[in-house]
Amino acid sequence: MERGTWKVKAGLAQMLKGGVIMDVVTPEHAKIAQEAGACAVMALERVPADIRAAGGVARMADPTVIEAIMKAVSIPVMAKCRIGHFVEAQALEALGVDYLDESEVLTPADESHHIWKHDFKVPFVCGCRDLGEALRRIGEGAAMIRTKGEAGTGNIVEAVRHMRAVMGGIRQLVSTPQEELMAQAKEIGAPFELVAEIHNTGKLPVVNFAAGGVATPADAALMMQLGADGVFVGSGIFKSSNPEVMAKAIVKATTHFQDPEIIAEVSKKLGEAMPGLDIKQIPTEELLAPRGW
């Protein structure tokens, strides 16, 4: 009997596919998310929109918050640690969380190095903006990938940009001749073995969710049609005017992403979605996606 193997780490992400992972800050939120059909929750002290508004240094959540959420629901509970902060990761692993997000939403602890994730029994999900970044994280041991998007904005444009970059990168590798793969690996800054694997299989070796800007059922279905395996919804649920209704609608839209009649039906009477931000109005130094490399 062997615990913490690559298969069980990547396998849990496979079980989350077609589902919605929701940011929650209280046990009550977590219960609403589970009741709505979320496949997992991300336990936080503040949703990204509030982290963005608060400024300062954002760190891992207080373990009492995470433990209370773990007690409240039976679905998997994820938590965030800072990029490169392997001690926060060790502490969260010790708490027994089911997945760790090494996240650009928190203030990075290391601007040069991400966590060496193979050393952990708990699986990691990491953000990416393109295929090279995704493969660097997988090389370090991420068992699941998500697009970064731009968290806390309620604006899908960056998530779309990043998903298109990842999927386009895969299509390009598939059509790259064998003898050019090494140069491609150098070009995108990715481990050669993973580049060669994608050339042969035509897909990422791990599950890839969309994140960072999903605010409506149509946003979720858009990301699914662009090739996401599932979606993270951060501020989009509990910053909307009717979280229960919004949560259920996004869950249904993620399952039925190819069914326009269902998307139309679940988009009715949702109340106000979270307030959105125009990315161009955000000062460059306040953007989250460029954190990490």
Binding site: M1, R3, G4, V8, M70, P76, G96, V97, D98
Partner: peptide
């Protein structure tokens, strides 16, 4: 019984 072996870090292969 659901989650009968514990949380994710108790997941295993055999």
């Amino acid at each position: 019984r659901r989650n009968a072996f514990g949380r994710q870090t108790d997941s295993f292969e055999t």
